[in-house]
């Protein structure tokens, strides 16, 4: 680029006169150099870069970034706190559930115990009643048996007398002899014993 070369020559020569003379090859002083390589504007740009970027760095590091960090940290803490609280509440709910289940189990076993007790009591009562009635029945049975035995005895005695009488009568009828009452009674006794006392 003509302007660029002209600038270099001008710098080397260090003479305003020569620079002006050579500068005519370009399109005037303003277009002399490709702007990004124009040393005339190096210092002003550097000065303002230092000022603005320095200010920006200070504002960011002292003011802005701590504030943003605070917001993010605050949120992180809040979330962690909420999660911890939720876990705690969950624990409480689980404890309540366990307690409820325990109470339920207790009530159930208590009900069971009461039922058992009642059943045992009823059974004992029933047993007692049955035992009572059994005893009474046995008593009655024994009484009845005794009565039967007495009646039977009596009946048997009657039978012997009747048999003896019948035997005397039969003998009298057959032989015409009058038997001794004692002898007949003995014979009847023997016969009944041989007949098994039926």
């Amino acid at each position: 680029m003509a302007g660029d070369i002209a600038e270099k020559i001008a710098v080397k020569a260090g003479e305003g006169e020569l620079a002006e003379e050579v500068g005519h090859y370009g399109d005037g002083a303003h277009d002399a150099a490709f702007p990004p390589f124009d040393p005339e504007y190096f210092v002003p740009q550097l000065v303002w870069l230092v000022l603005t970027f320095g200010l920006l760095y200070l504002l960011m590091s002292r003011l802005a970034l701590p504030r943003v960090a605070g917001i993010i940290e605050n949120r992180r803490e809040r979330i962690a706190g909420d999660v911890a609280k939720a876990a705690e509440l969950n624990g409480q709910a689980e404890a309540a559930q366990a307690e409820y289940e325990q109470a339920l189990t207790d009530a159930r076993s208590k009900a069971h115990a009461i039922a058992n007790e009642t059943r045992d009591k009823m059974k004992a009562e029933a047993d007692e009643l049955r035992a009572d009635s059994d005893a009474k029945l046995e008593e009655d049975l024994a009484a009845a048996e005794a009565r039967i035995a007495a009646t039977k005895e009596k009946a048997m005695a009657n039978v012997r007398d009747v048999a003896a009488e019948a035997a005397v009568t039969i003998v009298h009828q057959l032989t015409g002899e009058t038997s001794e009452a004692e002898t007949v009674a003995d014979a009847v006794e023997k016969a009944m014993a041989a007949g098994g006392g039926r």
Binding site: V43, P44, Q45, W48
Partner: peptide, 12 residues
């Protein structure tokens, strides 16, 4: 020191 404010400085 040439601390002139240029158009580049304005945008800085």
């Amino acid at each position: 020191i040439d601390a002139s404010l240029t158009n580049s400085g304005v945008f800085m």
